[in-house]
């Protein structure tokens, strides 16, 4: 009655797939961004699980860097979304067909 490490990896794979499906089916840019965060978290879960499997803290250090980079990414991404909303008055991804302003 215990948990093999693979169960955590299966859970992380499921969360990653759900996040990917969310990016594909949602139309609001903000919710798509949230789904990207979900995918980053699932990858972090995989890293931490492998760190436990290998009895080494390197995976946790890498997960730490992923968290830092995700924080920076959220800052810039949300600023871009706010700018996009000012330009188009909408956060619908379908409204942004072209990159021209």
């Amino acid at each position: 009655m215990s948990v093999p490490a693979g169960y955590y990896l299966i859970l992380a794979a499921a969360l990653f797939s759900i996040g990917a499906v969310g990016v594909l089916i949602r139309r609001s840019v903000i919710v798509m961004f949230m789904c990207v965060e979900l995918m980053l978290n699932s990858v972090n879960l995989t890293l931490v699980t492998f760190a436990r499997i290998n009895a080494s803290l390197d995976g946790q250090v890498l997960a730490f860097f992923v968290i830092v980079v995700a924080a920076a990414e959220v800052t810039v991404g949300l600023a871009l979304i706010v700018n996009l909303f000012r330009l188009r008055a909408s956060t619908d991804a379908d409204q942004v067909g072209a990159l021209r302003a």
């Binding site: 169960y7 990896l9 990653f16 797939s17 990917a20 594909l24």
Partner: peptide, 17 residues
């Protein structure tokens, strides 16, 4: 596509564990 992604990811990462 999501189900396919899940199956392949789970098989690739969690298979030996």
């Amino acid at each position: 596509l999501g189900v396919l992604l899940f199956v392949s990811l789970a098989a690739a990462t969690a298979g030996p564990f």
